[in-house]
């Protein structure tokens, strides 16, 4: 389930009547919300059978594919916005995936857990892999392949030529806290980005 705060941010960033693709769309709630509030033309990509059925029930267009495959197959498509919430770190090649996302759409919304979050650092200091609200699974169950810190992610954006149009940092209660916005690499549990291309 996506936090209410994150879906609010996304709603603000998505222009009315735009064409949106949501990679890893889950049960289609976000797309349904954007269709109802922003009158978008939306498509979801999802692999989980139950989630797909729930999308169809909501009348959401959903394509059964894993995200990597979807991003590759839709490379020549024409979206205004591509959304990838809490999934970028699960992909085989996040940098290639992001480049492709910015090819198939003008803008890209990415949310990611911050591995530099102080609780992660503390856990590692104590010699354990972190388990936090935004990284809830233990190391042997997690689907995460490429965890990074806020600084790592922004460095990748800069190296790859992705323009960060907007960024919002959330604390562990998914609120825009003061500490999280002043020192995100240490105090943000999650980063929410709106990216564009040069």
């Amino acid at each position: 389930m996506m936090a209410i705060e994150i879906s609010k941010i996304i709603r603000d960033w998505v222009p009315s009547q735009s064409k949106v693709i949501d990679f890893g769309c889950g049960d289609g709630s976000l797309l349904k919300d954007l269709i109802d509030t922003k009158n978008i033309c939306g498509y979801g990509v999802e692999i989980d059978h139950q989630m797909i059925a729930q999308c169809i029930e909501k009348g959401i267009s959903v394509v059964e594919k894993d995200i990597d495959e979807g991003i590759q197959d839709f490379e020549l498509s024409n979206f205004d916005i591509a959304i990838m919430a809490s999934s970028i770190q699960c992909l085989k090649n996040p940098n290639i995936a992001m480049r492709r996302m910015l090819k198939l759409s003008n803008k890209c919304i990415v949310t990611l857990p911050n591995f530099g979050y102080w609780r992660c650092r503390l856990a590692l200091l104590a010699g354990k892999m972190p388990v936090t609200p935004s990284l809830p699974s233990s190391w042997y169950e997690t689907e995460n392949l490429h965890l990074c810190t806020i600084n790592d992610f922004e460095e990748l954006c800069s190296d790859a030529g992705f323009i960060i149009d907007e960024r919002i940092f959330l604390n562990s209660s998914n609120k825009k806290g003061l500490l999280a916005s002043v020192m995100p690499n240490m105090f943000a549990s999650e980063g929410v980005y709106l990216l564009g291309r040069k």
Partner: peptide, 19 residues
Amino acid sequence: GREIQLAAMNVNVSCSYVT
């Protein structure tokens, strides 16, 4: 089937695809 799905999506037609 995916060919139809992709073409439909590219012209904003509401379309779901399942295997």
